[in-house]
Amino acid sequence: MEKKIKVLVFGSGFAGQGHADAFRAFDVDVVGIVGRTANVVSKVADKMGIPYSGTDWLQALEDCQPDIVSIATPGGAHFEPIKQAIEFGCHVFSDKPLTDSGNSALELYELAKNKKVKTAFASSFRYMPHIQHAKQLIADGAIGEPTEVECISHFNLERDIPFGWSHRKEEGGGRLNNNFTHMMSIVTSVIGEKILSIIGEVRDDMGKAPIVEGVHNFKTRRDFIPKDLNDPALKWGQSNVEWSYTVLAQLESAMAFKPVSVLFKHGGLTPRFNEDHIVFYGTKGAIYIKGHYGMGPLYIWDKNNTWKTLALPNDIVANQPKIVGDTERNWHYLVREFVKDIKGETAEPYQTFKEGSLYQKLIDLIRKNNNWTDVSHLQ
């Protein structure tokens, strides 16, 4: 009987539990889980039937002897555990962002190459079925040569969500780390992976957020918003990272003679009036997908100059893991291909630390906010 692959998960919140479920779905043995708070990680391990739990990552590597590690903590806590796991000889599956800086992300990419371990970078909304449908349509010439892409989203997040990692650059927070990584992955999956040039502007609309104890799961942080925000005893933490961004990029495409222009516009705290959307424009038509991550439905501007809804092809539907929840289903999709690759089976191409380090370099460039031209003297 073939020996089961073993995975050790770092992070006991929503992502850690989701990663564990995904690996189990593809016959990988989840041998342990590590978190920062002993009683929390112990409860999660008991609930999920994971035999080992702890707070010491290096000790867990020694005790569990995993083949793969799955990194599901905030990005600022990724560097040392990933480095230690690579040195240990483990393959690494990491959620985004890879780290909190381009240089540290590049170091991990180079180390993984040198150690000849496989890596997966989970900017995984490229696996959304309507995104895959758009990729198929554009490759088949449905809109002619692609010329332009527009990605617009407004999340209207609560300004009073408790202070935490999402508010701090050094902890992997910010909308570039946690939204732009997915958006760039989506667009490159459809248009082409080669990014030629980029320019951007960021803005911190948040300022501060209330400090509240007991928040262990990112998905439930809204439940901890203080009822009295004017309480004089309430403490506040300062944000130092962007909550809105505007980025322009040019991508090379095998389907176009000229670079394809891309607009990424995201407001984390701003309300939407119409639907968030992704649009692919071409010389002979356009494809519009509702939803910030391409949730659908998908519409095509046809030869009659009208928008027409297209159903998902059966092959794309059949290839999707049967999982409820977009985030969870996309993790399952990527884990499936990653595990196939590790086993030496034929797998679809997936993003690795190569893309993870590139995206972190791009984020560093965008955050410099030095793209402005002073025209005040012209007025």
Rank of each mutant, 00 (worst) to 15 (best):
R203M: 11
K83F: 08
S42R: 07
M184L: 15
R168M: 12
N178K: 02
S153V: 03
K265I: 07
T346D: 10
A38I: 11
I289M: 00
L365W: 06
L334V: 14
G164V: 08
K219E: 12
N371F: 13
E107P: 02
G267Q: 04
G144K: 12
G144F: 11
F125Q: 09
E355F: 10
I138A: 00
T188V: 10
L8I: 09
S42I: 02
P97I: 04
R175Q: 15
Q132D: 09
P129H: 06
Y245T: 01
R221K: 13
S185M: 05
Q59S: 15
V215C: 04
L263G: 08
V7L: 07
P81S: 06
K83G: 08
L98I: 12
T327G: 01
I195S: 03
I363M: 05
L334P: 00
H292I: 08
V317Y: 09
F338E: 01
A347E: 08
V69D: 06
I198C: 11
K235D: 12
V40T: 12
R336H: 09
K343I: 05
Y333R: 11
I186P: 02
D231L: 02
A209W: 02
E148D: 14
I366M: 00
A134M: 05
T246Q: 13
Y281I: 07
R367E: 14
N103F: 00
N371K: 10
F273I: 14
T188G: 04
F280A: 13
P66K: 10
T346N: 09
K4T: 09
Q360R: 10
I161Y: 04
N114E: 15
N274Q: 12
V41Q: 02
I287C: 05
K265A: 14
M184D: 10
L98W: 03
L61V: 03
V202M: 01
D27S: 14
V7R: 05
E158A: 12
D231T: 05
R175G: 08
W243E: 04
A60R: 04
A112P: 04
K4P: 07
P51E: 03
N240S: 08
H130Y: 15
G173P: 06
W331T: 06
K3Y: 08
W372R: 10
S42K: 09
D100Q: 15
E80M: 10
D231R: 01
A77R: 11
T73R: 01
F23W: 03
H216T: 12
M206S: 01
I287W: 05
D67Y: 02
A134G: 05
K340G: 07
S70L: 06
V149N: 01
E148S: 13
E328W: 00
V92W: 02
F257L: 12
T55I: 10
D160N: 15
S153Q: 06
M183G: 03
N274A: 11
F180R: 08
E275I: 01
P51A: 08
E348L: 13
F93L: 07
V339S: 01
P81H: 03
T283F: 09
K115N: 08
S94A: 15
Q238P: 00
A311G: 15
S197P: 07
F14C: 04
